[in-house]
């Protein structure tokens, strides 16, 4: 194990973080807003060198960083792509992130990657596949990862386990943490007529290592998880309830399409910070 290159930084659970995207690089470097961490899509920094990595290393000197993968494909029947896992491991040792996460989904099949978070049936078979992949990833990276519940537009008749129970089981069996996406829980409940609160209640509080918030888009075919708008009022309500149950948890606001000026994103994160502070104050008041 080499010497650390960066100061040890962990997200302050009483202050939200933001998703870091290219259009905000210059503004972020100039204004250094008070956010508790920056989250990036790991794959965007898989390069051997170059400006993207240089930017991230520069930001890492000032902020805690979370590496959030989109394409490891934990639900692949073919197993993990060893090259992908190696590149992730290399990035983890370069950046020394506070958090490393991935999605409960699949994208890789027969040596091809479809570049999308595709849904899994929630069955014993899927559970076996996902847990084996999470074990492999955690072993290769030498650390705990968080896994995120995804938005889905279809459900499978093969599913035999409620989604919340499935996510909780993955955490229980592998020791990984949960990245609880409250917006995805809401999107799925709206799209499938299920109960977001039942989903959230199935997740063990101690397993939750991070929370995601984002704004979806309403279409004729249901809610689409576009990460392209402000967080919905209903999702704020679910988030408040969740924080009341879990206590303060590092929270991230994601914005990937129709990306607004940095101030708008930071203002959205500040709303989450206000919720986290209230919960923290309540906890201290009760103690």
């Amino acid at each position: 194990m080499g010497a650390a290159r960066f100061p040890l930084r962990a997200p302050d659970p009483r202050q939200a973080g933001i998703g870091l995207r290219t259009p905000h690089f210059a503004a972020l470097a100039g204004s250094r807003p008070a956010v508790s961490f920056l989250e990036v899509h790991s794959e965007n920094y898989f390069a051997d060198g170059g400006p993207a990595l240089a930017w991230l290393e520069r930001f890492r000197a000032d902020y805690a960083v979370s590496l959030h993968g989109v394409a490891l494909s934990l639900g692949s029947v073919d197993g993990l792509d060893p090259v992908h896992l190696d590149r992730l491991a290399r990035l983890v040792s370069r950046i020394e992130p506070a958090l490393v996460s991935e999605h409960l989904c699949w994208s890789r099949l027969g040596g091809r990657n479809l570049g999308e978070l595709l849904p899994l049936p929630y069955s014993e078979e899927s559970l076996g596949v996902v847990c084996a992949r999470v074990d492999e990833a955690q072993e290769r990276l030498g650390r705990r990862i968080l896994v995120e519940n995804v938005s889905a537009y279809v459900r499978f008749r093969e599913s035999t386990i409620p989604e919340g129970e499935f996510v909780a089981q993955v955490a229980r069996r592998t020791g990984c943490g949960v990245l609880l996406d409250v917006n995805n829980a809401y999107v799925n409940a709206e799209n499938h007529g299920t109960d977001a609160r039942a989903f959230l209640a199935a997740i063990e509080p101690a397993s939750v290592g991070e929370i995601h918030l984002a704004g979806p888009e309403r279409t004729g075919d249901g809610l689409v998880d576009s990460h392209g708008a402000r967080v919905l009022p209903d999702v704020w309500a679910l988030y408040e309830e969740t924080i009341a149950r879990l206590g303060p948890v590092p929270t991230l606001v994601e914005w990937d399409t129709n990306i607004p000026p940095l101030e708008v994103l930071v203002a959205e994160a500040d709303k989450a910070t206000a919720v986290l502070r209230r919960a923290g104050d309540r906890a201290r008041g009760a103690a």
Binding site: L114, G115, E116, L118, P121, Y153, V154, R155, F156, R157, E158, N191, H192, T219, D221, G222, V224
Partner: peptide, 25 residues
Amino acid sequence: SSIEPGGDEGVRRLAIYGRAVTANL
């Protein structure tokens, strides 16, 4: 036959994935 919702609604929901994959690539 494996997905819900069934029928045309299911096909339209699948098309969201089809468009997303194309758009991403």
